[in-house]
């Protein structure tokens, strides 16, 4: 028996919104430690890895590991039936071919349940090596979203250049060029407004705007985003979920043929 109850149900809705652009279907791996998911987008350019720790749920029971393969478009349809202040419970029997979502209003006067068919997905699990990144940038997630949106008007790819002074995002296209520079700024009133750079050596890497824009669908999940970069390895874009886990995106760099 698997059962996970989240009073802050809106969080689950936001997590789903953050991945459904990239993934049509995915397997939610449920274990005693929590729920995790790892999947590549259909073109195998990016990878989503997320983790929701069991202690972040208000009630969590997982007698034995279960893999819940879901069509995320269908899951999103069901999640749209939950209000933002609803309490959400996910339930599945061991070896079940369906999952049940229960939505309760805070006053418990309305309780809805939706049963969805599960899928048997042939998922390829990738081992992600531990990497010492040359540059780690922490910045407001809204700012990152804005920069990705703005520069995708200019070109198809963004060059992210990082030095210890700051980080520069650049795009070039038929109409011309655009550059956005952010200076390191840790001395701000609010922690979430800080731009902090940890640099071992400067990097300059090129990434596709389309994927970066998809990653920014996670913006409502966290006030800050962390970009980890090294030459010739995938970029990591991480949104930390307070007291709960993370949503991470890995994006393969553009490479010289």
């Amino acid at each position: 028996m698997f059962e996970a109850r989240l009073v802050q149900g809106a969080l689950l809705k936001k997590v789903l919104e953050s991945i459904k652009d990239l993934l049509n279907e995915a397997t939610w791996e449920c274990a005693a430690t929590g729920i995790s998911l790892q999947a590549m987008d259909s073109s195998h350019v990016s990878l989503v890895a997320l983790n929701l720790r069991s202690d972040g749920f208000d009630k969590y029971r997982c007698d034995r590991n279960v893999s819940l393969g879901m069509n995320l478009t269908n899951m999103a349809k069901i999640m749209k039936c939950a209000s933002n202040d609803d309490v959400i419970t996910i339930k599945a029997q061991d070896d079940a071919d369906t999952v049940t979502f229960v939505f309760e209003t805070p006053n418990q006067e309305k309780i809805s349940d939706y049963e969805m068919k599960l899928m048997n997905l042939d998922t390829e699990h990738l081992g992600i090596p531990d990497t010492d990144y040359s540059c780690i940038v922490k910045m407001p997630s809204v700012e990152f979203q804005r920069i990705c949106r703005d520069l995708s008007q200019i070109g198809d790819s963004v060059v992210i250049s990082c030095t210890k002074e700051g980080v520069k995002f650049s795009a070039a296209g038929d109409l011309g060029t655009g550059n956005v520079k952010l200076a390191q700024n840790a001395n701000v009133d609010k922690e979430e407004e800080a731009v902090v750079i940890e640099m071992q050596e400067p990097v300059s890497l090129t990434f596709a705007c389309r994927y970066l824009n998809s990653f920014t669908k996670a913006t409502p999940l966290a006030p800050q985003v962390q970009l980890s970069m090294s030459s010739d390895v995938p970029l990591v874009v991480e949104y930390k979920l307070e007291d709960m886990g993370y949503v991470r995106y890995y994006l393969a760099p553009k490479i010289e043929d």
Binding site: E124, L126, G127, P129, P234, Y250, L251, P253, K254
Partner: peptide, 14 residues
Amino acid sequence: MVGQGKISEFFIRA
């Protein structure tokens, strides 16, 4: 020419 790398070229099958 600049091409798009695939994530599976960087991460190995577990």
